[in-house]
Design a protein around this nucleic acid. Sequence first.
DNA 1: GCCCTTACTGAGCGAGCGCTTAGGCTCGGG
DNA 2: CCCGAGCCTAAGCGCTCGCTCAGTAAGGGC
Lengths: 214, 214
Amino acid sequence: MSRAAETVGGETEPWEEVTPDAARRLLVAAVEAFAERGYHATTTRDIAGRAGMSPAALYIHYKTKEELLHRISRIGHDRALAILRTAAGGEGGAADRLADAVSSFVRWHAGRRTTARVVQYELDALGPEARAEILALRRQVDAEVRGIVEDGVAAGEFDVPDVQGTTLAILSLCIDVARWFNIEGPRTPDEVGALYAGLVLRMVGARPPGDART
Amino acid sequence: MSRAAETVGGETEPWEEVTPDAARRLLVAAVEAFAERGYHATTTRDIAGRAGMSPAALYIHYKTKEELLHRISRIGHDRALAILRTAAGGEGGAADRLADAVSSFVRWHAGRRTTARVVQYELDALGPEARAEILALRRQVDAEVRGIVEDGVAAGEFDVPDVQGTTLAILSLCIDVARWFNIEGPRTPDEVGALYAGLVLRMVGARPPGDART
DNA sequence: GCCCTTACTGAGCGAGCGCTTAGGCTCGGG
DNA sequence: CCCGAGCCTAAGCGCTCGCTCAGTAAGGGC
């Protein structure tokens, strides 16, 4: 498996940075509820109930329901960006780095689907300032992938007429995994990651590893 | 432009089948509101207000708010499926039909983005029976695309190791257009459709038209 | 023993929700 | 000229929402 794999595989819950313990339990409960029902359909009573607390306890650790979403979105985007940066900063050619980036990114969206759903689909529920902060992180995600594609084109490894459009499509493909992936479905996150890495290499016109055609 | 193009381009509002006029105005208002804010964040007062009516007027034409969503989702899925069927039933080779299907489908998701967002992202807000009905339509959409891919493989036009997985990825790519497409962005729906058709042909290992390589 | 801080609960506030009801306006048919 | 059907509104019911607040229990420093 690739270098960036352990960034995803090694952890059980990625929320260890959230303290104290009660705040983390509330946040994990909120991720589950938001992913299942969506932000607006989730009640603060539901979140507190899942964490084994009274509704009022939530407001000791978070000012509003929206602050919970903001924290989740921020941490999730940071994690996703870190995964991409690890792959993009690798040492192989552009094709290796792109395959590594796509498979890691997809594995995260599939394996941590509940978090990814909240991160990718509840952006509009944030207020203007919080949304602007998150959008800045998304531009960094886009730049990371576009960088690999540009490297591949410059090195003659890829054949991409529209770099920005293709970058958009690659990210779109990865992100949408969070919408359809089902833990009980026939595919593991690793399998989807491998499948998607191959598809993306074709999209950029790279020769698959070991292919002798020109 | 392709044969399936006029299915999208020729219409101004695809809701002419909804009568009487007041019911249609309410439905169009609901599509806009659901697309902007999401089903759960939209109030019946908002829908009625956009249609220039009092909140109670909604309940003369629709039993519940959910019935509105159901009608929108049903009509939208019917339209999307019709577009795909037109392309899939065309007369060219598998590559032509796949390119036609993808570009038409993408044009619909980009050009009628508000409808597409409601159709693709608010499915979970429906009750069990309504959701089951819509899921049956989605399976037909999947079968339509998978059929083209299988034809291409059988004819030796495509090189696809995992037909079901690749079909899933193609549809995922098209559907996610509804999430990111922006009318004020740099690309027209036609341009995105053409870009995506080319990318998908690469994903299935088809030789681009006029390419002399083996 | 005393008091302060921290973490939490039970009760409930004001607002806004989906939806209902009673009644009025506008017509075509008799 | 009246009537009933179709379509709409003003008012509001019952409920649940996000959030607040007074009070309580536990723990540590002196």
